[in-house]
Computed example of a mutant assay.
Amino acid sequence: MGKIAAAALGLLVLVAVLGGAGAGGMLSGFGSSGTQPSASALTDIPSDYLALYMDAATTCPRLDWSVLAAVGKTESDHGRSALPGVHSGTNDAGARGPMQFLLPTFQSVIAKHPPPQGGATPPSPYNAHDAIYTAAAYLCDSGARDGRNLTDAIYAYNHADWYVSDVLTQAQAYASGAGFGADATPTAAALQAINYAQGQLGLPYEWGGNGPSTGDAGFDCSGLTRAAYTAAGISLPRTAQAQYDAGPRVPAGQQLKPGDLVFYGNPGGAIHHVGLYTGGGQMIDAPRPGKTIRIEPYRYQGDDYAGATRPFKLTTRSIG
């Protein structure tokens, strides 16, 4: 039996063992949490951890299990890491357990959201059940509830842009079809563009900026998207308006794919901003003077979203 088949069988066996409400809760995660596990998820995530991620995610509306699993992967390789603090003691920062909680944070969260039965008594950050349910509650309270601000939620977990980027990228790999949905698989060029843009996180916004390779300190919005797609072998015009006009347009109401360019302004008039959609309702963009390149929601209250385009190579076929 192959690794993927064995992992899938292990998950099904665990469902049968759980039974009753526990199994129902886990199974509901396949629908309410949005995605099913990809082959890489079934291969990489231990079946007991996968069941916990999927069930715990259902306690927070619109929190996809893959995000919770990506945090677990990044923090401790799903409890497999032998580093200090994972199984006993703490790391240099005082964090402990498979989800790497500071003890005051863990105690504060469980006081508001006690984990369900099935863990340690009293709840322990070293116990995978308790740690994963507590991580779901912490992400939920920090912005993940109802998809309000997933980026802020992940940033609250670890205050670093690289951490947000790594977690979202890992979540996409774990979801069935990169980009949080089987119909949202990106092209190879789109993944290259996203990878380039992620490498620019934290650089300053610079009006007319084309990036450090040209001697500029940073980028403006269209300079970043143009450079990202240049790295993927696709030539784009220089300004946001010209990129919007170049198309091809994503039809209104169609699901966005990672790598789509998202635009802001008046579709029949002036386009003033562009970002690179990365999946999960997020984009990478160079926002405005005084800010740095960052990951943020592509839709926000009061925005003037105008639509999206989907650059592609004429000489290659999409893998989506």
Results as ranks from 00 to 15, higher is better:
residue 1 M to C: 12
residue 13 V to R: 08
residue 16 A to S: 13
residue 24 G to I: 08
residue 27 L to P: 07
residue 34 G to A: 10
residue 38 S to G: 06
residue 44 D to N: 15
residue 51 A to E: 09
residue 51 A to K: 06
residue 53 Y to D: 15
residue 54 M to T: 02
residue 57 A to I: 05
residue 77 D to M: 15
residue 93 A to K: 11
residue 94 G to F: 10
residue 98 P to I: 07
residue 98 P to E: 07
residue 101 F to W: 08
residue 101 F to E: 03
residue 101 F to K: 05
residue 105 T to D: 11
residue 118 G to I: 10
residue 120 A to P: 10
residue 134 T to E: 13
residue 135 A to R: 02
residue 140 C to Q: 15
residue 143 G to Y: 09
residue 145 R to P: 05
residue 145 R to N: 15
residue 154 I to Q: 01
residue 157 Y to S: 11
residue 159 H to C: 01
residue 161 D to I: 04
residue 164 V to E: 01
residue 171 A to Q: 04
residue 177 G to A: 02
residue 185 T to S: 14
residue 185 T to D: 14
residue 190 A to W: 10
residue 194 I to M: 14
residue 197 A to E: 05
residue 200 Q to L: 01
residue 200 Q to A: 06
residue 201 L to F: 08
residue 202 G to W: 08
residue 205 Y to S: 04
residue 215 G to C: 06
residue 221 C to A: 12
residue 221 C to D: 10
residue 222 S to G: 03
residue 227 A to T: 03
residue 231 A to E: 05
residue 238 R to V: 06
residue 239 T to L: 10
residue 244 Y to V: 00
residue 248 P to I: 00
residue 256 L to D: 08
residue 261 L to E: 11
residue 273 H to L: 05
residue 278 T to C: 11
residue 278 T to P: 02
residue 281 G to E: 00
residue 281 G to R: 00
residue 284 I to H: 12
residue 286 A to D: 03
residue 288 R to S: 14
residue 293 I to T: 07
residue 309 T to A: 14
residue 319 I to Y: 05
